[in-house]
């Protein structure tokens, strides 16, 4: 696949993903993500790197009482292993 074909493929699939995101957020009445429509013509093969998704997560920003953590590094293993069929035991 050459670069031009790659751009067309990615453009088409990206349009599908963006529609999915908008639909999913609308169904849940969520407005935590705001699509910035730098690239409005997805079918024109614009590179996805022209877009940016931003979160309005003001409660999570540092400086606002440090908010909820986005991820954590501690964990508590207790010898549990993933067993077939039973979920984590």
């Amino acid at each position: 696949m050459n670069e031009a074909e790659l751009k067309v493929l990615i453009g088409r699939v990206t349009e599908s993903v963006v529609s999915e995101v908008k639909r999913s957020e609308a169904e849940r009445g969520i407005s935590i993500a705001e699509l910035r429509d730098h690239a409005t013509e997805l079918g024109g093969g614009k590179l996805p790197s022209a877009w940016k998704i931003s979160y309005d997560t003001s409660g999570n920003l540092v400086g606002n009482a440090m908010g909820p953590a986005a991820w954590k590094i501690s964990y508590d293993t207790s010898g549990k292993a993933l067993l077939p069929g039973d979920g984590v035991k």
Binding site: T14, S16, V17, V18, V21, R28, I30, P48, I53, A70
Partner: peptide
């Protein structure tokens, strides 16, 4: 998550090109 839509798109495109079955599941973070 919404902020990683590009990554989901790139990988979806690669899987489609290879003819590998896949599904996408969107999620809100945390």
């Amino acid at each position: 998550t919404s902020d990683a839509f590009e990554s989901a798109a790139w990988v979806s495109a690669a899987l489609e090109h290879r003819g590998i079955a896949y599904v996408r599941v969107w999620m809100t973070p945390i």
